[in-house]
Amino acid sequence: MNADPYLMVADAELRLISVFDELHYDRADLDMLSGPMRRRALDKLAMLGFAQRSGTVIENTAEDIRIHMPKFRALGASPFDVLRDTDMREQDYALLTPTQAAAQIITAYPAETALGKLGELVVKHPANLLRLFDFLEPKPTHQSFKKIAGQLTYLQREAISREPLKTRRALR
């Protein structure tokens, strides 16, 4: 899956799959899986034996693995809450935008670990870092993100200015 420039396992431990569709963000952009993002994931996952079971679940019945696509929430919803109501089993994955995946990583790991994982994510799938900053809570893991936000912004800006991201187009 990581061979596809638009899909990657963002974090194997948290079972997060990121689907990319944008190089530049405005902090007020909607953060949701678009139709083209869903189609790209479904097409690639079908090659691995997955089929869409419902509007929010892709399943490989032979392997007993589900991939959950979170439902779209209100316009002002936090990317940190994207999986709040998702009933995932131990073997299940979540298909998320890069921003949503980054939010889950920030919440789950200490700053140094998160920086490494987020660095790998943003150089392949840029995230809306300013939007994440807007939704930080007074939790220690969220506050530690403030210290690494500048480093991530720099890494992402550099990645976008070079190939292969520089000429990558949004999914249609």
Rank of each mutant, 00 (worst) to 15 (best):
L23S: 08
R27K: 15
A28D: 15
A28P: 09
A28T: 14
A28N: 14
S34H: 12
P36S: 10
A41I: 13
A41K: 07
K44L: 11
L45P: 02
M47A: 15
M47S: 12
F50C: 01
A51L: 14
R53T: 13
S54P: 06
G55L: 12
T56S: 10
T56H: 14
V57L: 12
E59Y: 04
E59V: 11
N60G: 00
N60Q: 05
N60Y: 07
T61S: 13
A62S: 10
E63L: 10
D64R: 07
I65N: 04
H68R: 11
M69R: 02
M69T: 06
P70L: 01
P70N: 03
P70F: 00
K71D: 10
F72R: 12
F72K: 15
L75V: 14
L75P: 09
G76S: 10
G76E: 09
A77F: 02
A77P: 05
S78C: 03
S78M: 03
P79K: 05
V82P: 01
D85T: 02
M88K: 02
T97C: 01
P98W: 06
T99G: 01
Q100Y: 05
A101E: 03
A102K: 05
A102E: 03
A102H: 02
Q104M: 11
I106V: 09
I106N: 00
T107S: 06
T107N: 06
A108D: 03
Y109F: 04
P110M: 01
P110S: 04
E112K: 14
E112Q: 09
T113H: 10
T113Q: 11
T113C: 05
T113F: 04
A114L: 08
G116M: 14
K117W: 00
G119C: 02
E120R: 09
E120P: 07
V122M: 10
N128G: 12
L129M: 08
L130V: 11
R131Y: 10
L132K: 00
F133Y: 13
E137M: 13
E137R: 14
P138I: 07
K139G: 13
T141V: 12
T141Q: 14
Q143A: 07
S144L: 04
F145L: 00
F145T: 00
K146T: 13
K146C: 04
K146I: 08
K146D: 01
K147I: 04
K147W: 06
K147N: 14
I148A: 02
I148C: 03
G150C: 08
G150D: 10
L152M: 12
T153V: 12
T153L: 13
Y154F: 15
R157K: 15
R157I: 08
I160F: 04
S161Y: 09
S161V: 06
S161C: 12
R162C: 08
R162E: 12
E163A: 13
E163S: 13
L165G: 08
T167E: 13
R168Y: 06
